[in-house]
């Protein structure tokens, strides 16, 4: 499975998508969407991070066990955010 060599074309396509999304996130920052700006920026960043993980980090071609580990990282990050912020906003 890890011997899977992915066509170069896929990597170039991912690269072009990442560059385009960078331009979009810069451009969109100049428009005022009120409180939505930060969510748009984080949404685009998350799309970029996801395709980096899936293709450049080969997560897509990895066994489900690797998915579980990566998912655990995100889950624990989520817990840290939610519990800390819940504490602050309820003081």
């Amino acid at each position: 499975m890890s011997q899977h060599v992915i066509p170069q074309k896929v990597y170039y396509l991912v690269f072009v998508t990442l560059i385009l999304l960078t331009l979009v996130t810069v451009d969109v920052a100049f428009y005022n969407f009120g409180f939505l700006n930060i969510y748009i920026a984080m949404g685009i960043a998350t799309v970029k991070a996801t395709i980096v993980a899936l293709y450049f980090m080969h997560l897509r071609y990895n066994p489900r066990l690797t998915w579980l580990f990566a998912g655990a990282g995100i889950l624990w990050l989520f817990i840290m955010f939610v519990l800390t912020i819940a504490d602050y906003i309820t003081r």
Binding site: M1, S2, N62, P63, L65, T66, F69, A70, A72, G73, I74, W76, L77, M80, F81, T84, I85, Y88
Partner: peptide
């Protein structure tokens, strides 16, 4: 597979390492 999984485990600790600063930023 073992080395890949080992690296992902390390990266999970890295997520938490940077995560603290991101929480501070959000607050």
């Amino acid at each position: 597979e073992a080395s890949t999984l080992g690296m992902w485990t390390f990266l999970v600790t890295e997520i938490m390492f940077f995560g603290g600063l991101f929480v501070a930023y959000a607050l």
